[in-house]
């Protein structure tokens, strides 16, 4: 686990203000996830229903086609998997991926 050095009270904007726009992107809500959506490229028809339903804008679409899932921000709510007409998305235990990714490091 990486511990970020947090700023002291003299270094942060007063009043809890956030002074730059669009900063929600920096908040990596992907760390909240306990289950990860995994898309089967072969089953996906690129109907974009997952893109419509995703509450965190975490379905990456390029030129009208699903390119992948933004795991930095996907909270693992599972709505995409539930709504996907051809059942191309399945929810898998996040722990398994973390163990694999941890082993690589």
């Amino acid at each position: 686990m990486i511990v970020k050095k947090q700023k002291g009270w003299k270094e942060i904007p007063k009043g809890g203000l956030i002074l730059e726009a669009g900063n929600a992107e920096q908040y990596e809500t992907g760390s909240w996830r306990s289950k990860r959506p995994v898309r089967d490229e072969n089953k996906c028809t690129h109907c974009l229903i997952c893109w419509v339903y995703c509450p965190d804008s975490s379905i990456i679409v390029e030129e009208g086609k699903v390119k992948g899932i933004d795991y930095q921000h996907c909270k693992g709510c599972g709505i995409c998997a539930a709504e996907c007409p051809p059942k191309a998305i399945t929810m898998k235990e996040e722990k398994e991926f973390q163990e694999k990714e941890g082993a690589k490091k």
Binding site: Q6, K7, G8, W9, I12, K14, G15, G16, L17, I18, L19, E20, A21, N23
Partner: peptide
């Protein structure tokens, strides 16, 4: 210059903001 007023401020920064209020 868009900015955010009143965002969620949990255990990681709330205390620092209270400390600022003491100073001010």
């Amino acid at each position: 210059n868009p900015l955010t007023f009143g965002p969620l401020d949990l255990y990681d920064y709330y205390f620092e903001h209270k400390r600022q209020q003491v100073e001010d």
